[in-house]
Design a protein around this nucleic acid. Structure first.
Lengths: 347, 347
DNA sequence: ATTAGCACTCAAAGAGATAGAGTGCTAACG
DNA sequence: CGTTAGCACTCTATCTCTTTGAGTGCTAAT
């Protein structure tokens, strides 16, 4: 593979991304840093086509990059733009600071991405896998009705109402609260399991059968905590994309088919995947640009955009990269929102 | 206005709703309960057009109802279908029972409506205007960090983390909890106001200045409670509608322009409004079918669908009507989920 | 190895031509 | 007088045919 051929491939991708039309040998020859005639370019393009990097929509049309062509361009040829300082400042402002709740942080990042790229943004929340349960409270609020409050060290607070068969006495509630505190306080969210709660139901039932709904309630709350949530925002932008199949987009908006697999399989660092490469993903001709953000050095969630394959990678990749780095930084400084249970001052 | 002409107008609407094509005099004359020739119908249709009830996309095409035509059809001509018992049972099942939280109830209704009608569903939550605050708890969860828990008699539970300047002693927390309990317990959500909280901040600050963030936190939670929330679900269905302008639909999905005004202006009972009649609403050629549900005899929120003007009113209206009635019934029986504070058994 | 020149291809855009659904009007009918 | 059959007329949708032009591939010259 000739050096000039690579240059031509890059030029074709750039031009196609810019105009959206198949690009011909003439328009390439007129570019600044190309100093060969259109005939030479035609020959090279024919070779690039044979190698599978370009294709023609039909004879006598210009060339369009194949996804193999995009792949080479992204992995080897492209040099991403630098993000100007003022852009960085703008993004910082949109994101929030270290006091911004984690959920809001990724949500803000998603909003920023949709506005800048005019594509759909996709984010997953940070599963607080490595945070621990710092407090469980059971608060009576009415006839046989109790509210369970579950708080983790990373600042998630979940609540749930729970109706029992009988009212609990002061002692019964005390017993239960102590039991739960002893068994769950300081336990990491990741190690919570269905079996664990089954055991607790058994233990608690031995004392008083009608307590078991409370344990079940806590179990359900902990499931909420562990759940990886996938949010796609601005998906309506995909409908304005000429190159995406409307039916496929509508289906994707409804079911988000294949997206979580795509994200799970991604390794760290910025990454670009094409709908056509992966048959579990619903939208052909689409491109997914994602990166994972980290918290405490561990992967915590993903952030990126879904758009047409013809998208300005040079421009968009730096945005996604910067945002994930920034989120990682903010989440780490943010680790001590709610301190570990040992520090809690009991009233 | 001739009786036969009305019959013909109704037939045109029915046919147009069924087929989606402009309807001609011949197809009307072949209908069962029409016993005049196509020529007669042609004459009548010409009159209906002059009166503004019908229009022709172009000469030598059939007629299509104008929105004035739809209006007359809906208000006077149409007889809604009866909802078969099995449909009612299915809806009952989808909705939930009296133990289902109110939010979920309306959300289930929205899901049911999108599935049945293939239109977007719109719901507003029940603002718990007439329910009262039954409990406020402040729970220490870490260094200078407190979680506020606000519970109302209708079962809403809201929480919020709050960071103070200093840690509170047992006595200080006790003082605060008692003060809040005394001033808010049993107060109706509707009567909560900014000024009220301003006074409380002043009173509490006299005791200890650094308590004021807690009051502000409670104030913010109460704002959450009072907020009317508008949810549109299944809005992607609108994009499959031929007769709606895609750009307008996308704009609507993004901003929900004019919808809350439309809903606020609605009076009780089932109601149909057209996008074309109301210029604040974003989607031309659209139709909004809503009804308000009630709680304790008072209007509590709205429920309905947004679709193209060409929609099967005879079929859909009974669904919306039945669902609002059912929700009203469930919400009333549901009024005592969390009993008033006097009934609370303190541990 | 590169380039100019030229014949060739193919989609997109435009120009008629045709078919058919539906109308409006007129004259006949009960 | 309201209703109806008959007929000429209109207008769109669809098809085919032609034209246009961008872009190619090949060949021969540099």
């Amino acid at each position: 593979m000739d050096d000039r051929k690579l240059k031509i491939l890059a030029a074709v991708v750039d031009e196609y991304v810019r105009t959206g039309e198949p690009v011909g040998s003439k328009s390439i020859s007129q570019l600044e840093n190309i100093n060969v005639s259109s005939a030479t370019i035609r020959n090279d393009m024919a070779v690039l086509e044979q190698l599978g990097y370009l294709e023609q929509p039909h004879t006598s049309a210009g060339r369009v990059p194949t996804f193999k062509g995009y792949r080479l361009y992204i992995d080897e040829l492209m040099t991403p733009h630098d993000l100007p300082e003022e852009e960085k400042r703008m993004l910082d402002e949109m994101l929030g600071d270290k006091d911004t709740p984690e959920e809001l942080l990724v949500q803000n990042a998603a909003t920023a991405l949709t506005e800048i790229t005019h594509c759909a943004a996709v984010v997953t929340n940070a599963v607080p896998r490595f945070s621990v349960i710092s407090k469980v409270e059971v608060i009576p609020t009415g006839k046989r009705l109790y509210v369970i409050l579950l708080i983790t060290s990373n600042g998630s607070i979940k609540n749930k109402a729970c109706r029992l068969e009988f009212d609990l006495s002061h002692e019964q509630l005390d017993f239960f609260t102590h039991y739960i505190e002893e068994n769950l306080s300081g336990v990491s969210v990741d190690s919570l399991s269905e079996e664990m709660f089954d055991k607790m139901v058994a233990a608690v039932s031995a004392y008083m059968v009608s307590l078991s709904p409370l344990v079940k309630g806590i179990c359900e709350l902990s499931e909420d905590l562990r759940q990886q949530e996938l949010t796609v925002s601005g998906s309506e932008k995909l409908l304005s994309c000429e190159e995406l199949d409307k039916m496929e987009v509508v289906k994707f908006i409804e079911h988000k088919d294949g997206l979580s697999e795509m994200l799970e399989n991604a390794f760290s660092g910025i990454q670009v995947k094409f709908g056509s490469e992966n048959d579990s993903f619903a939208i052909g001709n689409s491109s997914l640009i994602v990166s994972k953000y980290r918290k405490g050095g561990k992967e915590a969630g993903s952030l990126g955009i879904i758009g047409p394959m013809r998208v300005d990678y040079k421009k968009i990749i730096p945005y996604v990269e910067y945002l994930t780095q920034k989120i990682s930084a903010l989440m780490d400084s943010d680790d001590d929102i709610i301190s570990a249970p040992s520090d809690i001052q009991e009233p």
